[in-house]
Nucleic acid binder design. Sequence first.
RNA 1: GCGGACGUGGCGGAACCGGUAGACGCAGCGGACUUAAAAUCCGUUGGCCUUUGGCCGUGGGGGUUCGAGUCCCCCCGUCCGCACCA
Length: 862
Amino acid sequence: MVRTDDRYSVRETEAKWQQTWEQADSFRAGRDPAKPRYYVLEMFPYPSGRIHMGHVRNYTLGDVVARYKRARGFDVLHPMGWDAFGLPAENAAIERGVHPAKWTRENIAAMREQLKSMGLSYDWSREVATCEPEYYRHEQAMFLDFLKAGLVYRKESWVNWDPVENTVLANEQVIDGRGWRSGALVEKRRLAQWFLKITTHAEDLLDSLKTLERWPERVRVMQENWIGRSEGLRLTWELDGRSDRLEIFTTRPDTLFGAAFCAISPNHPLAAELAAGDAGLAEFIAECNRMGTSEAALETAEKKGWATGLSVLHPLVPGWRIPVYVANFVLMDYGTGAIFGCPAHDQRDLDFARKYGLPVKPVVLPPGADPATFTVGDVAYDGDGTLFNSDFLDGLGVAEAKARIIDRIEAEGSGARTVNWRLRDWGVSRQRYWGCPIPIIHCPTCGVVPVPRQDLPVRLPEDVTFDKPGNPLDHHPTWKHVACPACGGAARRETDTFDTFFESSWYFARFCSPHRDDVPFDHAEADRWLPVDQYIGGIEHAVLHLLYSRFFTRAMRDCGYLSVKEPFAGLLTQGMVCHETFKSTEGGWLYPDEVVRRDDGTLVHGETGQPVVAGRSEKMSKSKRNVVDPAHIIATYGADTARLFMLSDSPPERDLEWTEAGIDGAWRYVNRLWRMVAMPALELPPSGSPLPDLSPAAAKLRRLVHKTIAAVSDDLDRFHFNKAVARLRELTNALGEVGEVGEATGAGAAWVLREGLETAARLAGPMMPHLAEEMWRDLGHATLLVDTPWPAAEPALLVEDTVTVAVQVNGKLRATVDLPKDAEAALAERTALAQPQVVAAMAGKPPRKVVVVPNRIVNVVV
RNA sequence: GCGGACGUGGCGGAACCGGUAGACGCAGCGGACUUAAAAUCCGUUGGCCUUUGGCCGUGGGGGUUCGAGUCCCCCCGUCCGCACCA
């Protein structure tokens, strides 16, 4: 438990320094043109009302980087804002009758206070909230620019439609095919929606991933897969008995002679046409549409098809008819929405063929297989090999066969070599209220008309109600009725709003000049600060937010807003904060503070005494109740303790297990550090006094001080925060021994102790800023630690004159010997062979070989 | 299904290029202080054995090497992503 009479009064101390920094305006960016610039950014939060441990971790990591870089002499931009549009505000409006604007603004105010209590070094003068017209007006203007630049278009696409709520549902709101709130069966509907042409930049978005050297490899791989470049063939087949043709896309044109069927998507126009005269097919299509549309759902679902009765004619073999199916695993959005199937060399096609009794004809022979006997059973062969059963392709390898057949098809005019992308254009229309209005007017005579510049922003009306299902903008009495800017006739506004990824795709640029109201941001300022040197946030944004931001930056560059094309030069993706889960015997989740651990180790409910079952540790979430409120932790232990715990133990990219014991340990260390300065073991000489003669013990301690500076600096440079904490603890452990028997005493001990404590305060500064500032003042400094440069290690103190070298016999450790640094191999060998344990282990045998690695190891082989 | 990551003491994790496995912390155990407790401090803590010594040990099995947590091959397990949450 926490003692209240501790002399280190956290609350007062932390509040005091927060106030001091604020009054000194310590964290304002852009004041010193002589300094190199550094832009560190954490993903801005959705203002849910309270910060959670994930925020604490994210913002602690960012703050350590920001404070460290400041100390290292950078002019640091470290801003914070609010990703303030989004669904939860509308849910609150529906469930509790609070207006989204009021709810959001109150949440922002509450969260700002919570963040401030963490002592984060933000330049608060740059705060932005995306729900305010001062922010979103600029993205309306940019959208119109994108439209002019040909980066925007409108087309129909499928949505999840809840027929009871009259609203479009997000995928996560569809549970087992039903609306999450209404429980109604979700329908697929086509709506005209706005799209941004992210695909025009697909090639560059893919190729430039290589330049993002300070991004985690796995994020780059995820984006690479997402963009999904594949080379193949578009091929048109003649439909038997019809005048039209079927166009398919394939990445395996080499297997064309093994084709067994063609399959089209349930959403293919041909399928719709056929369904009109085929009730069974119509029902099959409806069934497919009820199934989830995610790739994972499609890939794992049972492969099903519907024979249309149509056939296509094989493009290279006259008279070969191939049946056409509608199949549930063919995506309309990928390629042409139609494929040909070669069962022998594709598992999915094989499953399908087996189910419908289609022929399985191998055309690629695995190396070493016998063409006379090779057959395909339950497993398709998708490896390389030699073509056979394939006419003019026989004998070729897969790659040559692909090239050869594409050449032939192109020569015949029935198809062409194509690069296909998995990446689809970004649909930005949302049929929701709490978002940025799309600045478009629909006129019955002029069609789609952009809102004129001088009429921006199109403000989101706040006088709306949520008593009816559907989008409030749609049933607002006046808002959508406007005169057409072109002809003056009666027209109506677009009532869709932007996807909230729109706001987060450029906020990092807005932070460079957040108060310009004529432009989204100052071009020169953006070029000066961008790209963000270090971006920090959750791995869950690995694809969408980060890819959209990369695209948006290119689009902004296309339109002359800035000069860079990559928004984030460095990326750190932090792991989740997890906690043990608890369930009552009835199966309900319990909050951690409802659970009491008895002396015998059993868990019981604090009030009822009922036994409690401990579950596995999982990501903190309200639904599992395994949450710990940061506000409570900060009020009890202080921000520095919470921050220290976030940094200790686990490396940032891994999951962090929140434990009571862990926070206690951090709290003990905070107090220990404080006590070392408040009640020093020796009387300290004044700061800056000349270096006295040092006893050997004092000199050794001083070397540790400087080694710690070097190690912590290196750790912070590489984001090894847990190791930095460990090094700091090692230093303070050693400093704590000063004055004890056998430790640094006598000549110079007090001087080294002062140097050590000042170093500890300075190294702790980025991690535990309030405590460090307090220590700095207690050590007699009138200036602020935040204005003090990072300590420099003296190179001469980093090298030891002796090293401990391990001695192995046949690879097993038998002894260690101390040798002068860089000792001759002969000396090392001689010393090693003289060790009694080594002699014993050699058992009288002569050494066959001696491996000497200078300063590291001697291995004697007998 | 496809793609990716990870696996080291009771626990979180260290170990840079292949060179003393377990830094630092948590928990445990023993002790000091105290009437007692809290707090603090000191010592100890991978396992096993025939204990001044030795053997085993980094998910499992094989390999390369004087030497493997680290490199290679196969296997097992866990987690994450796969297009309207943010």
